[in-house]
Design a protein around this nucleic acid. Structure first.
Lengths: 200, 200
DNA sequence: TAATTTATGGATCAATCGTTCTATAAGTGA
DNA sequence: TCACTTATAGAACGATTGATCCATAAATTA
């Protein structure tokens, strides 16, 4: 049973991907409706009919981001790997994605919705929740590391997580500032020397 | 020889400090002229007579920031301390400033000018240069550490710096997201276990 | 006191913001 | 074919953006 009415002339899924890259690169506030209409090649009416509002589209884009490029929990919750290996895989993947020349540099959840004006605090909150998801997953991984004896039993899981997650979030700034994949992978290696293992 | 003309009715230095805190908290793009006029309690004419433009005021505020709260090179270039101690002092100071309840959380150079619209790329560039200054100072400190034998001679100074600086920049995100001074100081301690010293 | 200089309050500017409206086009179902 | 539904292009909306103008106020200098 086909849908009635005039069919949409553009691919909504592709549009979300394009918009995601725009928000990712420029940030929510600095991406105007005019910007979006330009990259999507849409009239105002089509835009609003398809997406509802700028904010609603951002929400869809952020979801798309966490479902694709920004997805990291699968690495961190993979208990077939040792926690250290899981963290290492996540970090390397993060570096590769955030320095790729085929997408904007840095992490969308760190760069696109940190500082919004008063009218758009929901965007900040939404973006924060994505950052929190990653931190929570790191926390789970660190706890596994302690349980398995891969990290000292005295390790403060919360602070150790904060140490790792600060580094993760900092990668975004470095990538945005022009650090290369090679340099950041080396930085990851240095960080992981910190993984205090009785087995090393 | 006193200045001629009607005297200014407000304290320009205090105004810069107030504006600095506003830019620091909300970011350049999300701080409107109306916001500034409100917190400074100024008419448009007075604002433009005193500061020239929003961009020019931001520039002064960023300078004020690097001269005061955001100043870290003195810690890093203090050769009376060991490089590790210098890094540690810098990190602890950074955490304390960025989690202080008397000023906005996080670092102004990371949070206030990362993502500007096309018209304000100079603001991005300016803010970037502040981030770079810190990174350069860390680099000098790391090199001293290698020279003094405090870090392995094989250490890649650039990547090691990137590791430390990523953590530094990440502190801003964590502070903005609500991490406390205590938690972040503990994270600093964990990070510095990474300082590979033949003397430890 | 008069001339000069700078600051102030408040109206106003063009441009842009995100959004909505109107008329028309293009499809489906009866 | 005709009613119905949805999409389109493009004008237009009120609000806000950063910035300027104008008349007046308050100081210094002569």
């Amino acid at each position: 049973m086909a849908r009635t009415g005039r069919p949409r002339e553009f691919d909504r899924e592709k549009a979300i991907e394009t918009a995601m890259n725009t928000f990712w690169e420029k940030g929510f506030e600095s991406t105007s409706l005019a910007d979006l209409r330009t990259v999507l090649n849409l009239s105002s009416a089509s835009f609003y009919a398809a997406f509802g509002s700028k904010k609603a589209l951002y929400e869809e884009c952020l979801k798309r981001y966490t479902d694709t490029c920004g997805e990291v929990t699968s690495y961190l919750d993979d208990s077939s790997k040792s926690p250290k290996q899981a963290i290492q895989s996540m970090l390397r993947h993060t570096v590769t994605v955030q320095t790729s020349s085929t997408s904007p540099q840095g992490c969308m959840a760190v760069l696109s919705g940190m500082n919004c004006c008063d009218d758009n605090k929901e965007v900040e909150t939404l973006t924060y929740s994505v950052r929190k998801q990653t931190r929570d997953a790191i926390f789970r991984c660190v706890k596994r590391g302690i349980e398995r004896g891969e990290l000292a039993a005295t390790t403060d899981a919360e602070s150790y997580t904060l140490m790792l997650d600060s580094f993760v979030k900092g990668i975004s700034i470095q990538a945005k500032d022009g650090a290369t994949e090679e340099q950041l992978l080396a930085a990851v290696d240095y960080l992981l020397m910190n993984w205090t293992s009785p087995m090393n």
